[in-house]
């Protein structure tokens, strides 16, 4: 059975120089689509990807990641909305490249569909109320 999940990987410094993505493809036969990647000096690495493949291989791949010290989170937890600050103006709606913000035509309130979010961060700075936050 095939699975496909969007996940966020945090690498400790010790892992940054390893060919992790290569191993996921070569050893576990997984397909991946990198949505975001960043490695900065003196900081851990961050990789946001959509990982898909056979369930058994997927689980083995994820276990390999855990074994070498990579922490794994589901993607939706990484960009979130601070509902106390959101004014439902809509400034985020057209800035989001993946269509994760949708205006309810009846109430004009903005819904955040976190499943569609690819953690690009565009909404964070485009939101005048700074209601969108990145959890790292």
């Amino acid at each position: 059975m095939a699975v496909s999940k969007r996940i966020v990987l945090h690498f400790p410094r010790s892992c940054v120089d390893q060919p992790i993505v290569y191993r996921l493809v070569k050893d576990y036969g997984l397909m991946l689509n990198i949505l975001k990647a960043s490695v900065s000096p003196n900081e851990e690495g961050l990789l946001v990807l959509e990982l898909s493949g056979d369930r058994e291989n997927y689980e083995k791949g994820v276990r390999y990641l855990a074994d070498i010290g990579v922490s794994i989170q589901p993607l939706s937890r990484d960009v979130y909305r601070n509902d106390a600050r959101c004014t439902h103006c809509g400034a985020c709606v057209t800035v989001c490249p993946s269509g994760a913000f949708v205006v309810d035509p009846a109430t004009r309130k903005v819904k955040f569909l976190d499943k569609k979010c690819m953690v690009c961060g565009m909404c964070i700075r485009a939101c005048p109320a700074r209601a969108m936050e990145m959890r790292i």
Binding site: T87, H88, C89, G90, A91, C92, V93, T94, V95, V103, P105, T107, R108, K109, P128
Partner: peptide, 25 residues
């Protein structure tokens, strides 16, 4: 504007509001 798209120079352009209609309500 509230339909979510308008036409400008023959191109369909998505719209967004900066004023909060729900807060105004």
């Amino acid at each position: 504007l509230k339909s979510g798209k308008i036409e400008v120079k023959g191109k369909e352009v998505p719209t967004a509001s900066l004023s909060s209609y729900p807060k105004a309500v």
